[in-house]
């Protein structure tokens, strides 16, 4: 039976993809370099901000946000975390990571929320998006890391692009979910009072979906932080660096303090954004 002959490779998909990526890199590398520009500019701006501002001001700003949205305990935790990171000698790496994470999250929000709204309002668009979102969330980052480097070259910006691929799905999904959860009677009521579709979105669907959208943003931040180490493999700076460096040279201690800082930073950002979402 020829049909069940699985010993030979009948479909050389790997070769096709190889050829396609080579062709893409050869002919369109410049185009991909242009895509980088907005990300590059935003990142430089954020990095400039985090490195120019004195550390005490940054701590005060985060402490204020924590106090305002998440309560006293989180405020204390936030201040302690930043002091610990500073005394561990990882302040600069942490600032780079913060700039990277915020930059990725901003781009995820700017593209993800509109896509989520479209998916929330159209079943067909949701069906169309779903396999892409699944692929973005499950494809191991290492698979697309090399093509990203080939197209965008190494560095922090490439790290951010890889992060965006991984961190974008939750905000799209949760925005769509939030829009869909708005009670149909409320939309009916808005229409009955002469709302246009745009007014329905702006006055009813979006404000009511906001808690869900904020939950999506929170998830996106968490996933962006989880990409920090992988991004470091392609030359992105930040807290991933001590981890990668530590693993390469078997300095377990160095890797551990890098990892610890990532976890603590993640907890601070998570508590604060969750607090904002609940307000």
């Amino acid at each position: 039976m020829r049909i069940f002959n699985f010993d030979e490779q009948l479909i050389p998909l790997d070769e096709w993809i190889q050829t396609f990526v080579d062709w893409l890199v050869l002919n369109y590398r410049e185009f991909f370099q242009i895509i980088k520009v907005p990300v590059e500019i935003s990142l430089e701006g954020l990095e400039w901000l985090f490195f120019t501002l004195p550390p005490w001001l940054i701590i005060v700003a985060f402490a204020y946000a924590a106090w305002r949205y998440a309560g006293k305990r989180v405020t204390v935790f936030t201040v302690l975390t930043f002091f610990l990171i500073g005394y561990l000698g990882l302040w600069e790496d942490t600032m780079t990571t913060l700039a990277m994470v915020i930059c990725s999250v901003v781009f995820c929000a700017v593209t993800g929320i509109p896509l989520g709204i479209l998916a929330g309002r159209s079943d067909r668009f949701e069906m169309f998006m779903r396999p892409f979102l699944d692929a973005m969330q499950t494809t191991p980052a290492f698979v697309y890391l090399i093509p990203v480097v080939m197209l965008f070259s190494i560095g922090t910006v490439s790290g951010i692009l890889a992060t965006i691929v991984f961190a974008l799905p939750p905000i799209i999904r949760l925005t769509s979910l939030g829009i869909r959860q708005v009670h149909p009677e409320l939309i009916e009521a808005a229409l009955a009072f002469g709302a246009t579709p745009w007014q329905v979105l702006r006055k009813v669907q979006f404000p009511l979906a906001l808690p869900s959208i904020m939950a999506g943003l929170n998830q996106t931040i968490m996933m962006a932080l989880s990409m920090v180490v992988i991004a470091a493999l392609i030359g992105a700076g930040g807290l991933g660096n001590p981890v990668v460096q530590g693993l390469n040279t078997l300095e377990i201690g160095l890797a551990t303090i890098g990892g610890l800082s990532i976890v603590l930073l993640a907890m601070v950002l998570d508590r604060i954004t969750q607090g904002i979402g609940q307000k």
Binding site: L186, E188, A189, A192, K203
Partner: peptide
């Protein structure tokens, strides 16, 4: 219109 489930925002 007035709705059975009130449909208030």
């Amino acid at each position: 219109m007035v709705f059975q489930s009130f449909a208030l925002m």
